[in-house]
Design a protein around this nucleic acid. Structure first.
Length: 592
DNA sequence: GTGAAGGGCCAC
DNA sequence: AAACGTGGCCCTTCAC
């Protein structure tokens, strides 16, 4: 590919060059940086390309004039980046959006992300890779040389090879988008793609914002757990070594409490009839007869807290901002759900002792909003089941009214046990639960569980029908879709019962879980728009929950904005079932 | 030493 | 034995 590019180093040329491209529908967009973290490195180049002409803008000379975020010389660049048109095509646009967000103070407007497009098209195929080189090779059949990617972008003057590499990466975006757009259309993925693209900038902003954690609070909590752990470990050690004491005259051998093998051995020696594994749910029934088992479960829980949610979390606190800037993967799961790492802010224990350490900074509040039973409402919408929908419309406690309907009693007659049972059943149904599993989690006999499931589906005939047809479609079409059209493909061997069964469960679950993800993403895009010009900053998301930090004086209005965005987003896909959002304003995350 | 696999458990 | 979905992170174990 022949690339024509011009290196831009002065304001006059920048203005003129930006004007020459501002009428385009689409522009390839890329950046070159000295680090991966925008808080640590320098933004050296910004490249924009219409496929024929490519601007390689060197920011080094501009940086000498002052703060890149405020110098007027860069206004033409900021404008073109922030505009909805031209749409900026980038690979993993979140990365570039974060850099220009932090260093130029520009929120990227219209976006087309070739990585997300490729992921949507792959529809969960784990074998496909989504690096730029792989995507270009797969869709354009071209080989891309990425050797300059890690070159020195700090150098006083960049080499021709570096500049040409930079230009090429932006230029290639244009034909790549054309190809991907065709494919998105062909696969019915345009609406899903729009949802994905529109939340790139909100997520980039969220990562830049970070989530404030009170380190002292966290350490205090840690010390408590540490002391607790030492005590429990000693007790468990004593109980377990009773079984191996004979092994040594010098006292009991130390058992590594974190080794399943050693612990299982010790338990056997004590005569505990352990099942095939020492998993919590298998050990739970033994806990009341064997104190050592109860102690082991206690130890595991504390150990988990200490290792996964201990000092290590604090290592992620950015020294500059004092906040945690986790890494969110937009299409983290084939269902469309986010995943999060470094650290995973989506798995912080729900207990207030942990969550109270995640706080708003001085003079600010956290606004925490979550959808109430969004997945069940989506299931209600999909199935169109009148009774199920009615249970939501009544506005009463959903699990209680479900219990009343299933057990044939009036809502006031529902016992706490019946409610708990209905709740488990409701959640289980979303995952495609079977009678055996239901029996296991409720303590019912298999036969009883079967009867209850039958009664449940006799009560909600529409639900039953939808779930059955979703399962059937998943096997026949080897795929499933969410309300936005997002797709997951299933690979399985139809002669393997367990694989077919697994596909059926996936067929039931993916549209529900994935539509929930569609809704959350739509909400993020709406929210980003309505928070502009306010103090509100997105700081975390957890599947059906959004956390915003805002100035105290604006907490109330931010709560309204947040609720509105979430309800509006859900209405795009759920029209016949009421949507409820629980919102709270607090100093920390422990509420709810 | 490093890396993968498997068991285990946290979140929704 | 027989699995209710999606992730990430920690640990031990074992192979290189």
């Amino acid at each position: 590919m022949e690339v024509y590019f011009q290196l831009v180093t002065d304001p006059d040329r920048l203005k003129e060059a930006c004007e020459s491209l501002s009428g385009e529908e689409y522009l390839g967009f890329d950046t070159e940086t000295t680090e991966l973290d925008p808080y640590e490195g320098v933004l050296r180049l910004v490249q924009l390309s219409n496929g024929k002409n490519t601007l390689v803008i060197d920011l080094k000379p501009f940086a000498e004039k002052g703060d890149l975020r405020t110098i007027p010389e860069l206004e033409p660049l900021r404008q073109i980046l922030e505009a909805e048109k031209p749409v900026k095509i980038a690979h993993n646009a979140k990365f570039d959006a974060k850099w220009v967000g932090h260093h130029l103070g520009a929120d990227v407007g219209g976006t087309f992300d070739t990585m997300l497009a490729s992921q949507l098209i792959a529809a969960g195929d784990q074998d496909r890779r989504h690096s730029l080189a792989e995507v270009v090779s797969f869709f354009l059949g071209m080989e891309l040389d990425k050797s300059e990617q890690v070159s020195d972008w700090n150098a006083e003057s960049l080499s021709d090879s570096q500049i040409e590499y930079a230009a090429k990466d932006a230029a290639i975006m244009v034909p790549l988008r054309e190809k991907l757009s065709e494919k998105l259309k062909e696969d019915g993925l345009e609406a899903a793609a729009r949802i994905e693209f529109d939340c790139v900038t909100p997520i980039a902003r969220m990562e830049l914002n970070g989530f404030y954690i009170d380190r002292d609070c966290w350490r205090a909590q840690l010390d408590k757990v540490k002391a607790e752990q030492e005590e429990i470990a000693a007790e468990l050690q004593g109980l377990l070594s009773a079984g191996v004491a004979q092994a040594s005259l010098f006292g009991a051998a130390e058992i590594n409490l974190d080794s399943q093998a050693q612990v299982a051995d010790a338990l056997k020696n004590l005569g505990v009839p352990i099942p095939d594994s020492t998993r919590a749910w298998q050990l739970q029934p033994l806990a009341k007869d064997y104190p050592v088992v109860a102690k082991l479960l206690e130890y595991r829980s504390v150990a988990k807290s200490l290792t996964s949610f201990g000092e290590n979390i604090l290592e992620f606190v950015n020294p500059e901002t004092g906040r945690i800037h986790a890494d969110f993967r937009q299409i983290g799961a084939p269902t469309g759900r986010f995943s999060c790492s470094k650290p995973n802010l989506q798995q912080i224990p729900h207990g207030p002792e942990y969550r109270k350490c995640f706080r708003a900074e001085k003079g600010h509040k956290l606004i925490v909003a979550d959808y109430s039973q969004i997945e069940l409402r989506i299931l209600a919408e999909f199935s169109g089941d009148e009774r199920f929908i009615q249970a939501f419309r009544s506005g009463e406690d959903f699990h209680a009214s479900a219990a009343a309907q299933v057990f044939g009693v009036t809502p006031s007659e529902v016992t706490p046990d019946q409610r708990t049972f209905a709740k488990r059943l409701n959640f289980g149904v979303v995952y495609g639960i079977g009678a055996q599993r239901l029996a296991l989690i409720t303590g019912f006999k298999d036969r009883e569980a079967e009867n209850i499931l039958r009664r449940y589906f006799a009560t909600y005939r529409g639900l039953d029908e939808w779930l059955r047809s979703a399962a059937r479609r998943a096997v026949e079409e080897r795929s499933a879709r969410t309300a936005s059209g997002r797709m997951a493909r299933f690979r399985f061997d139809e002669s393997e019962r367990s694989q077919v069964a697994s596909t059926q469960r996936n067929g039931k679950n993916m549209p529900i879980q994935g539509t929930s993800a569609d809704i959350l993403k739509r909400a993020l895009a709406l929210l980003h728009g309505s928070l502009k010009g306010t103090s509100g900053r997105l700081v975390n998301i957890v599947h059906d929950e959004i956390v915003v930090e805002a100035a105290e004086a604006e907490a109330g209005s931010t709560a309204k904005i947040l609720t509105e965005a979430m309800v509006m987003a859900a209405r795009d896909f759920v029209r016949n079932v009421p949507i409820e959002v629980d919102v709270s304003i607090a100093d920390d995350w422990a509420k709810s």
